[in-house]
Design a protein around this nucleic acid. Structure first.
Lengths: 135, 135
DNA sequence: CCGTATCCGAAAAGATACTG
DNA sequence: CAGTATCTTTTCGGATACGG
């Protein structure tokens, strides 16, 4: 990876780029809200449950820097700042829907795989505690 | 987020689920290689540039646990272990192509946005050092 | 209201020696 | 060959006091 030479590797690099931007713990939540329409800082703080002030600011700045969000300051008192998803961000959100589809189709399968794996791991650990009953 | 009540929020939650699985620093790289065909441990260590032994093992285990990778051990000496992407993983990779497309379409735009943002930030910082020349 | 600055703990990740 | 165990470094994220 990260040499991006072959076409396939190139694709992977782009994906990694996007994921890097979007995979933060809070990015998608913010993108979601701001895609519905302009949102103010405190509004986001309430709607994106569990986010801290610090992380809200940081994530907003990053998204703004990447051109996914526009920040509009109204020089009123008290201050008013609105964040809106850019067209590019809306397009991204559409692309994410493809992932959503995959997730919905396979969530059960994944859960089952996990359960199986964990069960296997459990018996393996047990086997290690009481070894070689088959003599 | 993370209450998943409204349909839109539900979608976001699924996406977050997937991203959580796939957004690790190395997951996609591994998925890419194993989607091309079975790969052995050392092979992956070489192909996924920069990965440490530890992270390779951890990521492989997680992907296996989620049912995205199958692990096949050949009881030979020296040992031989092969990792292969499951059909579910191949499907996921197809979905990621949608993101790849978005990334390719907008990489320039993003770079420009970043440059603009950083330039703005620079002049703002400079303005703070030498304030109020406009009197 | 809208942030920034600071401090701290948790978690991720790197390096690498060691083992079946 | 294919890992595991251990130690250290780095990054991420939460709490919160303060400022325009």
């Amino acid at each position: 990876m990260q040499q991006c030479e072959t076409p396939a590797a190139q694709a992977a690099c782009s994906v990694l780029e996007v994921l890097g931007r979007v995979s933060g713990k809070w990015s998608i939540g913010i993108l979601l809200v701001t895609t519905q329409g302009p949102a103010r800082f405190t509004e986001l703080e309430r709607q994106v449950k569990g986010i801290s002030r610090r992380m809200l600011t940081l994530t907003l700045r990053n998204l703004e820097r990447d051109g996914l969000l526009t920040r509009t300051v109204y020089p009123t008192v008290p201050p008013k700042v609105e964040y809106t998803a850019t067209p590019m961000a809306r397009e991204l959100y559409d692309s994410l829907l493809s992932l959503t589809g995959w997730a919905e189709r396979h969530l059960h399968e994944i859960d089952r795989a996990r359960a199986d794996y964990d069960a296997e791991a459990a018996v393996a650990a047990d086997g290690a505690r009481t070894p070689a009953l088959t003599g």
